[in-house]
């Protein structure tokens, strides 16, 4: 079978790619995609560790919770991004530096 370390290395790579996307991309939707990548790396870790507990399976359970939370986050974040675009006519995070109205 596949060892634990293989899963963890893949998830570490995915996490770092997500970090790079968040740090470099210049529009908010791509930053959101980077956040999703990091969340998915965390979920992969949960699932990989959850393999060693058949009765309580906390890993898979909290992976499910994390997926649902990611869905909620994305819905709210996209609504916020659309509103920011309506107000500022840009979704570049560098250009939105006044949050008070």
């Amino acid at each position: 079978m596949i060892g634990l370390s293989d899963f963890l290395i893949v998830s570490a790579g995915l996490f770092c790619v997500g970090l790079y996307v968040i740090l470099t991309k210049r529009n908010a939707i791509q930053v959101l995609i980077g956040i999703e990548m990091m969340l998915n790396a965390a979920i992969l870790n949960l699932v990989a560790f959850g393999k060693y507990d058949r009765f309580n399976n906390g890993g898979q359970m909290f992976a499910l919770f994390a997926i649902v939370l990611a869905a909620a986050t994305t819905a709210v974040a996209l609504a916020i991004i659309l509103n920011v675009y309506k107000k500022y006519k840009t979704i570049d995070p560098n250009e939105i530096h006044e949050l008070k109205d």
Binding site: F7, V47, K51, A63, L64, I67, A70
Partner: peptide, 27 residues
């Protein structure tokens, strides 16, 4: 696919239904 290989088939189906079917369509 990786979740299936980690023997978490239910999580894999949830991933497809919620992420691919929901979140990306939303984006």
């Amino acid at each position: 696919g990786l979740y299936v290989l980690a023997l978490a088939d239910f999580v894999a189906i949830t991933q497809i239904v919620i992420y691919v079917g929901g979140i990306l369509v939303l984006v």
